[in-house]
Structures are given as structure tokens and as C-alpha cells.
């Protein structure tokens, strides 16, 4: 077991790096597309919809292969890490966009009207009034998406990127001890996922603390 550790540790680094990088991409993409879906301008809404449906409608692995193997043929070339972060981030962002859109549209109309009555600009209303309330509703589904993302990082082993799963595969080929290697691998992913779940739960508790809608419900 101890002999596996260095290889697994280097794989762990790649998996964590990919997860964090893709989370950052997903965060930006989800907010951009989620808010664009509620835009008053039809082309903006349409563009967001195309992005969301395209990434939700096809498989993450197909997207990864397409970007890594097919795009270079039209002259667009990414290294494996960039391709992994980009595809996983955009894929998760497409699901996240629906979360953002849902949470924003769940805020009662009266909140917008109250902000309007206080003469806040639309940007101020969004930033000061709407988002702080909507974010609370986004955290639990975002936590689930983050774990789905962590699990999806295993796919990059198929474009020969040395993440946890890739290292485990190498070890399995070298040692032929399939059982212990994959059991260890499952255990590590489980611990990572539980850590993330714990983190998101703390975030949720902190944000939810003392919040209500300041009105009759």
C-alpha cells in the first residue's frame, strides 16, 4: 500500500487542481449564462440557451474528446490540463446556469419593487438586494454540482492526463493488484467528496444565519 503513495499523491494534486480550476470556470460561466437567461435582450437569452443546451445535451466525455482530439484539426490546440479545466468547467457551468436562473427568479417581485422604490440602479439592486438573497438558495445545489464535477475529473485520465484515476490505472497495470488499487482510489474520492460536502454545508449555514425575506411569507 505504501509503495502506491507517491504516485497517488501526484495524481491527487492533478485532481485537486482540475477540480478547483474547473470550479472557477464553472462559477463564472454559471453566473454569466444564468443572468443572461433572464436578460431583456432576446439574442443574449438565445446565446445563453444555446450554450446551456449544447453542454447539457451532449456527454462530458464526448466534449472532452472533441476539444482534445477534434479541435486541433481546425487549428485550435489546448494542452490536456487546459482542455480538462475548460471542458469540465463549461460543462458544470451549464448546469450551474440553471441553478442561478432558478434562484434569481425565485426572489419575490416585491424585492425588485422595493429596490426600485429606493431609487437603486439595476446593477445596485442586483448586487445589493437580489444576489445576497439568491445566493443562499444556490449553495446546496452548487455543492451537489461541485461533487459531480469532482467525479467528472476522472474522465481526463482518458485523455492521458495524470490524475488520480490515471495513476491508479498505471499502478494496476504495473502491480496487477486491481482490487486494492481501485478500492483505495474509491476511498480517496469518497473522502474528497465528503470534505467538499462538509465545506458547502458550512458555507450554507454561515449564509443562512439570520436571513429572512423581511416580509410576510
Amino acid at each position: 500500500m505504501v509503495d502506491y503513495l507517491p504516485a497517488m499523491l501526484s495524481g491527487l494534486k492533478v485532481t485537486v487542481l482540475l477540480t478547483l480550476g474547473a470550479m472557477a470556470v464553472a462559477f463564472v460561466a454559471a453566473f454569466a449564462a444564468g443572468m443572461a437567461r433572464l436578460s431583456r435582450r432576446a439574442p443574449v437569452r438565445g446565446l445563453a440557451l444555446v450554450y446551456i443546451e449544447l453542454f447539457r445535451g451532449t456527454s462530458a466525455l464526448v466534449q472532452l474528446f472533441w476539444v482534445y482530439f477534434a479541435l486541433p484539426l481546425v487549428g485550435i490546440r489546448f494542452d490536456a490540463v487546459t482542455a480538462g479545466i475548460l471542458v469540465l468547467g463549461l460543462n458544470t457551468g451549464a448546469y450551474g446556469a440553471e441553478v442561478v436562473r432558478g434562484a434569481l427568479s425565485a426572489i419575490p417581485r416585491e424585492q425588485y419593487q422595493a429596490a426600485w422604490a429606493l431609487n437603486l440602479s439595476p446593477a445596485q439592486a442586483l448586487w445589493r438586494v437580489i444576489l445576497p438573497q439568491a445566493v443562499i438558495a444556490m449553495v446546496p445545489p452548487a455543492g451537489n454540482l461541485a461533487i459531480e464535477l469532482l467525479k467528472n475529473t476522472a474522465l481526463v485520465s482518458l485523455i492521458t492526463l495524470g490524475d488520480l484515476t490515471f495513476q491508479a490505472q498505471t499502478l494496476r497495470a504495473a502491480t496487477l493488484e486491481s482490487g486494492p488499487v481501485f478500492a483505495l482510489l474509491l476511498g480517496i474520492y469518497f473522502l474528497l467528496a465528503q470534505t467538499m460536502r462538509f465545506g458547502f454545508r458550512r458555507l450554507e449555514n454561515r449564509l443562512a444565519h439570520g436571513q429572512d425575506y423581511g416580509g410576510v411569507r
Binding site: 467528472n152 475529473t153 481501485f182 478500492a183 467528496a193
Partner: peptide, 21 residues
């Protein structure tokens, strides 16, 4: 919870390589 927290790909490998043993 365990199944939901671990990648399908790894579960697939586990079944593919370990089950025959």
C-alpha cells in the same frame, strides 16, 4: 452516499478488473 460520491469511471474499472478475479 458512497456510490454517489465516487466516479462512475472508477466504479466501472472496479467491476471490469476486480469482478473477474
Amino acid at each position: 452516499e458512497f456510490i454517489r460520491s465516487t466516479p462512475l469511471l472508477v466504479q466501472l474499472y472496479f467491476l471490469f478488473y476486480v469482478l473477474p478475479l
